[in-house]
Design a protein around this nucleic acid. Structure first.
Lengths: 193, 193
DNA sequence: CAGGTAATCGGACTACAGTCCAGTTATGCC
DNA sequence: GGCATAACTGGACTGTAGTCCGATTACCTG
């Protein structure tokens, strides 16, 4: 059996998927995310609305798909990359402090670089942030780094609250990205004594 | 001049305002906030949609109006009530640690008691949370209690991130309200060493 | 290459938030 | 009490997210 692969994606579906992602990226660049409607994306991609929603669920799902590549590269750096972001040097960093610092720094960079898109992926529908797979990944990672605390899981959620796109967007507009970054770093430090 | 009062509110406007608030409260209790449309509220209150939006701006504004009384009572307890929540005992609490603990405890109580309403007031439109007056109040208060930190303003925002209705709603559903409460208390403690 | 099957497509449809403005009505002044 | 004015009212209107289902088309089998 040469073709025992799972049903995979139909050729036309793959073409439409690419067309939608390209059209969405172009429109977002040109007009800003907020100003682009799903109708406009469907029209620009040359597909119907049904196709758009069938493939991506909603606007948040579309944003997640556009972020996919960036997100994966950060996740791979965390899982397999060099220390301090990646694993390794477990001896001279017993409290995982440096690795947590590195994660916060890298995540804030990622967040600021793609703020509008991440913000849409987290706020398009209520509770979206906590449902998407990426959040689970960040949460698991931070939980492991907070293993010395009484309740690593809950504390990881609490730390991640300060990294919500909506929060960083609003606070950076008021006090500047630098102070937000330092404050969250200070919080991470406080949790790893 | 007996009637030098400012233009005040017209009698019919006051009647409609009360009718809307009553109708909204009743419908929210009965069907849950998410399931109630602005059309339904207007119809139940016997007013037109134009009136509803003129008076309250949007769904978030309506939620804020419904929360007004509760919110003010917490704010007054903070400003004028007894220690540790209110002012006083400045000597045996030099780092404001106890007062911050009391604030977190009181705020979490308030949040859990009115979670759906507060959540709507914060998430109805993007960025709503940071625009409403109440957030400014909580932020100013926490900033004062974090005066010993390098950047009280930014740290206050960071602490308040963990008290966002959206965040507490999602995390409490996963790990329970008690662990959320303790984790945020732990964070407040970590910031007041 | 032909036919069956199941996934996919796409545009008409619904429901909802929020806007607008012409008509109405309360209020203050004479 | 009558009138000018400004504020209020309410329903028709717009634009958008998201749903639905009949028509279409790609893929697999023989």
């Amino acid at each position: 059996m040469l073709c025992s692969s799972p049903p995979a994606e139909r050729a036309d579906a793959a073409r439409n998927r690419a067309a939608v992602l390209n059209a969405a990226a172009a429109l977002f660049r040109q007009h800003g995310i907020e100003a682009v409607s799903m109708d406009a994306i469907a029209a620009a991609a040359g597909v119907g609305k049904g196709t758009l929603f069938r493939r991506f669920g909603d606007k948040a799902g579309l944003a997640v798909a556009l972020l996919d590549e960036q997100e994966r590269s950060l996740q791979e750096a965390i899982l397999f990359g060099p220390a301090p972001l990646g694993p390794g040097t477990p001896d001279d960093d017993p409290g995982s402090r440096e690795r947590l610092r590195a994660f916060v720094a890298a995540y804030v960079d990622y967040l600021l670089a793609h703020l509008p898109l991440i913000r849409m992926s987290e706020t398009a529908s209520p509770g979206a942030r906590y449902r998407i797979g990426a959040y689970r990944f960040w949460h698991r990672h931070v939980s492991l780094l907070l293993q010395k605390r009484d309740d690593p899981e809950a504390d990881a959620h609490t730390l991640l609250a300060a990294l919500a796109a909506e929060h960083v967007h609003a606070v950076a507009a008021e006090v500047g990205a630098t102070r937000v970054r330092q404050s969250v770093q200070g919080l991470a430090d406080a949790l790893t004594i």
